[in-house]
């Protein structure tokens, strides 16, 4: 009975907004939300459709400027508290999405993407050029993107799949997993969490994977030309293929694979560093055997 009453009250105060505005190539979509969700899906029309579920006290403003489409909610009582956005936008459109207690999801973008929230997850499929995804309390996941990628979280993990371009990924507490990466510059660090990388190791390129508490596992393709620097204060190093260590200091050593033209830095204060061939990266059996 109580549930029924609650449902009736909810229906009574919830409102739907559905607005479509035309856009021109080069325009950017700005969305600002406090609580709820922002979902942006690409479509093949030169218009932006905004569907929003919100309180009847709130009003959704969709402003079309010379170079931007701005979407935000306003309330007679200050900030609109909860709005669920479902937005369709041209794939070419650059996206600038901000939230506080908001989950953000992007699907099919082909332009630049900025997505930042305080409390919520960020998921992005697609994106090119500048791709910047940040959350304080939420995991960040990026797939099928290319360009200059900057991914950040404070308390959750980061996952990147099929991403190409310069990559920077940083969290405080959480694992960082990168798979299917094509990059000549990768900088990855976490304080407490594991780091896993599977992707290209290119000639002349630079890769750095660092953690304080956690393991670092990197897939090294055959015929890779890279100079590897390994540093660990309290941990072991293990490679599934032979390496010949040349330079050794107390906490760091290095070795060269092939011509050594690329540079790979692997660092963990408390944890192990493992090199694997790409196919062995998720071979738990192999790692378990190593641990015993």
């Amino acid at each position: 009975m109580l549930l029924n009453i609650a449902a009736v009250i909810t229906l009574a105060v919830t409102q739907q907004t559905d607005t479509t505005v035309p856009v021109r190539p080069g325009m950017r979509l700005d969305v600002d939300n406090f609580g709820g969700e922002v979902v942006v899906k690409a479509w093949n029309q030169n218009s932006v459709r905004v569907q929003a579920t919100h309180s009847s006290r709130d009003r959704i403003d969709v402003e079309v400027g010379a170079s931007t489409v701005s979407v935000k909610a306003e309330s007679r009582r200050g900030i609109a508290q909860m709005v669920e956005y479902q937005i369709s936008a041209p794939a070419w459109m650059n996206l600038n999405l901000h939230g506080v207690s908001t989950d953000i999801e992007v699907d099919g973008a082909q332009g630049a993407v900025t997505a930042e929230t305080v409390n919520g997850e960020v998921k992005c499929r697609g994106g090119s050029g500048q791709v910047s995804l940040k959350s304080v309390q939420g995991a960040v996941r990026l797939q099928n993107a290319k360009g200059h990628v900057d991914v950040y979280s404070v308390s959750e993990g980061l996952t990147l799949e099929n991403v190409s371009g310069d990559i920077s990924a940083e969290t405080v507490s959480g694992d960082i997993s990168l798979e299917g990466i094509e990059s000549a510059s990768v900088e990855v660090s976490t304080v407490s969490g594991d780091v896993t990388y599977e992707g290209s190791i290119k000639d002349g390129a630079h890769y750095r994977f660092a953690t304080h508490n956690g393991d670092v596992t990197v897939g090294i393709p055959e015929r890779t030309n890279v100079t590897v620097s390994v540093a660990t204060f309290n941990g072991d190093f293990d490679s599934s293929f032979p390496v010949s260590v040349t330079n050794t200091t107390k906490h760091r050593f290095s070795f060269t694979l092939g011509s050594g033209s690329g540079r790979l830095e692997l660092e963990t204060f408390n944890g192990d560093i493992r090199l694997r061939r790409p196919g062995q990266l998720h071979d738990k059996h192999h790692d378990d055997q190593e641990d015993h």
Partner: peptide, 9 residues
Amino acid sequence: ATVRVLTQS
């Protein structure tokens, strides 16, 4: 909640 997460971090 955010302050708690930041403090823990």
